[in-house]
């Protein structure tokens, strides 16, 4: 395999910086599909969807991060990822994510149940469900 120049990855959230390291490849969950970014990529700004950000390191292994919505900016040899929440695969609390998923699913179910008479914010519940499912999916990536 040819030697790849490194690309610097920085991931920030409102709670602080989550990830900062050199990588050979970054795969971002863009709103229009996944984007693979390597060093010397054309400058780019993209909106991100809730999903999985994969970061390949120099030794070929991947780091997986569950990321929320936000944007990414690609500069010559740097990727800046700014999202509303992010959790590395190894740090995801699976039990908590499962509880959150069940709660969100339950709320969505109640919404369709005319007997329940509960006011459910559809958008919010869907967002919560998507976030929880995303966390669970990414959590399975841990080695």
């Amino acid at each position: 395999m040819a030697e790849h120049p490194p690309i610097q990855v920085e991931l920030v959230t409102p709670e602080g910086e989550v990830y900062k390291d050199a990588a050979t490849l970054v795969v971002l969950p863009g709103v229009e599909g996944e984007l693979g970014i390597m060093a010397r990529h054309q400058p780019l700004v993209t909106l991100l969807a809730v999903g999985e950000t994969r970061i390949q390191k120099a030794d070929g292994t991947y780091d997986y991060v569950a990321t929320g919505i936000g944007f990414a900016e690609v500069l010559f040899d740097r990727v800046l990822i700014v999202v509303d929440h992010a959790e590395e695969a190894g740090r995801i609390d699976v039990e908590r994510a499962e509880v959150a998923r069940r709660r969100a699913a339950e709320r969505l179910r109640l919404r369709d149940d005319p007997e329940a008479r509960v006011e459910v914010d559809l958008y919010r519940a869907e967002q919560a469900l998507r976030r929880a499912e995303n966390r669970l999916r990414v959590a399975q990536r841990r080695g």
């Binding site: 229009e32 984007l35 400058p43 700004v45 993209t46 909106l47 509303d84």
Partner: peptide
């Protein structure tokens, strides 16, 4: 200056970022 790619277009990204 320079060729920046926007996905989707800048106006859409801007609109989506405003609530942030």
């Amino acid at each position: 200056p320079g060729a920046y790619l926007y996905e989707p277009d800048p106006a859409t990204i801007f609109e989506r970022l405003l609530p942030a």
